[in-house]
Design a protein around this nucleic acid. Structure first.
Lengths: 120, 120
DNA sequence: CAGATATCAGGTTGACTGACATTC
DNA sequence: CGAATGTCAGTCCACCTGATATCT
């Protein structure tokens, strides 16, 4: 049982809600590309999120292939809960490092990540 | 398809073969504890590895509850292949960092890891 | 007896593939 | 037409639970 599961959530839910909160409404395919989630899996995921009232699914009138997914007020509340979990886990993880080392770690990992996203 | 899958392997196979190569023959339960793999999953895993000739399963005469799992010559060859894959992936991952930064990254992550294993 | 071991059956999540109809 | 989108069916690995028989 990871930290998300302990509050009845999952990584996918968090990443999708965070993406919606950050970048606004999007189609399922756009969300998938932002979050690294396959289109196929996004279907069931949005089903769950909308069943719980965290997002709303509506047909895009300008492009009728698409569903526009929008985060709800309840979804933002949920995101806050999950954000708290993430923050707490991060804090526990970085506990052994002083602030200067945390900064350095973030610098190194950021460089690694950016390079990967460029070369792959 | 990850790097292991691309050569027909899996993480579990790698960790078990590496543990056997490093620490010698062991029971399935011991292997599970070393590698963080559940006993239940170890059964099927050892089945596969022995079917491919990478390990040998024998009854322990001193404790007849146990199977003694031993890596074979073919298993060591397989481990070398997988090691090469791991080394190559690591190299690609750390490509953007100079040697001094790699050392620093290892130091920071080691500290984080050690602290987790102590507190959890 | 309690405890460890191996095994089996089964379920869940995340990651992926292939197909299909609809729409652009 | 080709390409994108959403949907569905199904596979695979990693992860986990519970039960059982055997042995220490």
């Amino acid at each position: 049982m990871d930290a998300f599961t302990s509050v009845g959530g999952r990584r996918y839910q968090y990443s999708v809600l965070a993406a919606l909160d950050e970048s606004g409404p999007a189609s399922q395919a756009q969300l998938g590309r932002r979050c690294g989630i396959d289109r196929s899996d996004m279907v069931a995921l949005v089903n769950e999120l909308s069943a719980q009232g965290f997002v709303q699914r509506a047909m895009d009138q300008d492009d009728r292939r698409r569903n526009v997914i929008t985060i709800t007020g309840k979804g933002r509340e949920r995101l806050s809960e999950l954000d708290a979990v993430v923050t707490e886990v991060q804090e526990r993880l970085l506990d052994p490092l002083p602030d200067s080392d945390r900064t350095e770690l973030v610098r190194l990992l950021t460089r690694v990540l950016e390079h990967q996203s460029v070369t792959s």
